[in-house]
């Protein structure tokens, strides 16, 4: 080759392999174990809801880019697929298609593209969609199919462990009296419980976490801190009064704590940038989750907690600076 064609560009001259499409692919792979558990538990419903949600989210992004923003569609970066999967993970596996469509449009249209697309949205798009649906379709969003592989689209529905707990306590029962109505902790761990599509199995979600840590996609700071916060805080209440408060293990294994801590709160865009900031953010997510669960109107609080903490991220980023080199006073 002729030397006049040599590229002259400033250093560095090499770059990591872990670029945005790689990161997104990694996150998608990390979600697969949880999806498999869901398919095992709910059969076709899980496939149907997840598939539609991905399709609608990616489609919404494509159409908005092409016809509204008139720019090159950005779905190749994979983030719309993740939003679709996460939205599906946060809804019941028997949700009708039109509700999924509305959720997808809100997630992508309002939650993400209205702020300028990937990187600019203050709130986690899937959670925006999820909370919108919860407020608009409270019945459909809380009728949970039970964890039996039926391979048909209409199974029986019932309450989640957290729902049973909240309703029972409201009716004046005690925790020890309610526990026998629920699956065992081992069932919780492996995912034999009612709940949103992707939150069933702590085990599957932890495999995903392990993979993302191994690939260095995320660091331990947010997931570990958030789960530990929920554990410690519910542990304190449980220690004070085990008849009114469920055990910390129950709290981390049920509902969306694992899903939230591993896949929702770790969203790059809507979480703090420094390690210190991540820890503060994750503690906030954990504390708010517990407060809502124990004292709020809803049985579950992970989505609200993360959305509220999302709002504090700019503040956290401004005030929690990383440790500087050579500026010790």
């Amino acid at each position: 080759m002729s030397q006049s064609l040599l590229t002259v560009a400033p250093s560095p001259h090499i770059h990591t392999e872990l670029t945005i499409p790689q990161v997104m692919r990694g996150v998608i792979i990390a979600m697969v174990p949880a999806l498999l558990v869901s398919v095992y538990n709910f059969g076709l419903g899980a496939v149907y809801v997840t598939g539609l949600s991905i399709l609608f989210c990616a489609g919404a992004e494509w159409i908005i880019c092409k016809y509204l923003l008139k720019r090159e569609p950005s779905i190749a970066d994979g983030s719309a697929v993740i939003t679709g999967m996460l939205l599906a993970f946060n809804v019941p596996s028997n949700l009708p298609w039109h509700i999924i469509l509305i959720g997808s449009l809100v997630s992508v249209g309002i939650g993400k593209m209205s702020f300028g697309g990937l990187g600019n949205n203050p709130f986690n798009p899937a959670l925006v969609g999820r909370v919108f649906l919860l407020l608009s379709f409270p019945v459909e969003m809380t009728s949970w199919p039970q964890a039996v592989a039926t391979w048909s689209l209409d199974g029986t529905t019932g309450a989640t462990p957290l729902g049973i707990l909240k309703d029972g306590l409201r009716a004046g029962e005690t925790v020890p009296a309610l526990m026998p109505q629920m699956p065992s902790y081992t069932d919780f761990f492996f995912g034999f419980q009612g709940g949103s599509l992707g939150e069933m199995s702590a085990f599957a979600l932890l495999i995903g976490l392990g993979y993302m840590l191994y690939r260095k996609i995320i660091t331990w700071h947010i997931p570990v801190t958030m789960i530990a916060t929920v554990f410690v805080m519910t542990g304190i209440f449980w220690f004070i009064d085990p008849t009114r408060f469920a055990s910390p293990l129950f709290h981390v294994l049920t509902g969306g704590v694992m899903l939230g801590a591993i896949f929702m709160a770790t969203d790059y865009v809507t979480s703090p940038v420094s390690h210190k900031g991540m820890i503060v953010f994750a503690i906030g997510c954990g504390v708010l989750t517990v407060l809502i669960r124990l004292f709020g109107a809803y049985p579950e609080g992970v989505s609200f907690a993360i959305l509220i903490m999302n709002a504090f991220v700019p503040l956290i980023n401004t005030y929690l600076k990383p440790v500087r080199y050579g500026r010790k006073k």
Binding site: V273, P322, Y325
Partner: peptide, 24 residues
């Protein structure tokens, strides 16, 4: 040598994690 496609900053914090001077 080809520069890969540039995306918006996703606030992943990796640059902060990497900076040996503790900058942002």
């Amino acid at each position: 040598t080809k520069r890969a496609e540039e995306y918006n900053c996703v606030h992943c914090g990796k640059c902060i994690e990497a900076c040996p001077m503790g900058l942002e």
